Amino acid sequence: MDDLENYIKESGGIQPPHLAFYSQAIRFNVESAMVSIETLASFIEMTNDTKGDYEMTGELQDSILDHLQNLLVHAGALSRYFWPSKPGKHDLHKLRSETLKKHFGLTDESPLKSRKLRNQLEHFDENLDKYLWAKPIVGHVLPAYVGGEIESGGVPAHLFRAFYLDIGVYETLGVRHEVQPIVDEICYLYQRFHSEPNT
Rank of each mutant, 00 (worst) to 15 (best):
M34D: 11
V35Q: 09
V35H: 13
S36Q: 08
S36M: 09
I37L: 03
E38I: 03
T39S: 12
T39D: 08
L40W: 04
L40V: 06
A41W: 12
F43H: 15
I44Y: 12
I44H: 14
I44G: 09
E45N: 12
E45A: 14
M46D: 12
M46Q: 11
T47S: 13
T47E: 14
T47F: 02
T47P: 07
T47Y: 02
N48L: 12
N48Y: 12
N48A: 14
T50C: 09
K51P: 00
Y54Q: 07
E55V: 08
E55N: 08
T57E: 05
E59K: 12
E59T: 10
L60C: 05
Q61T: 15
Q61Y: 10
D62P: 00
D62H: 13
I64G: 05
I64H: 01
L65D: 14
L65Q: 05
D66G: 04
H67R: 11
L68E: 08
L68V: 08
Q69P: 00
Q69F: 12
Q69E: 15
N70R: 09
L71Q: 01
L71E: 04
L72W: 06
H74E: 12
A75K: 01
G76T: 02
S79A: 14
R80Q: 14
R80D: 15
Y81P: 00
F82S: 01
F82D: 11
F82Q: 01
W83A: 01
W83T: 00
P84H: 13
S85R: 13
S85Y: 10
S85M: 14
K86L: 15
K89L: 14
K89S: 15
H90K: 04
D91Y: 03
D91H: 04
L92N: 03
H93P: 01
H93F: 15
K94F: 10
L95W: 11
R96Y: 08
R96S: 13
R96Q: 11
S97L: 03
E98N: 10
T99F: 00
T99M: 02
L100E: 07
K101V: 00
K102L: 04
K102Q: 11
H103C: 09
F104R: 07
F104C: 04
L106R: 01
D108P: 00
P111G: 06
L112H: 03
L112G: 00
S114I: 02
S114M: 02
K116R: 10
K116W: 02
Q120K: 12
Q120L: 13
L121I: 11
H123D: 12
H123I: 04
D125G: 05
E126N: 09
N127V: 04
L128M: 11
L128F: 07
L128Y: 07
Y131C: 04
Y131H: 08
Y131R: 05
L132R: 08
L132V: 09
K135F: 06
P136F: 07
G139H: 07
H140Y: 15
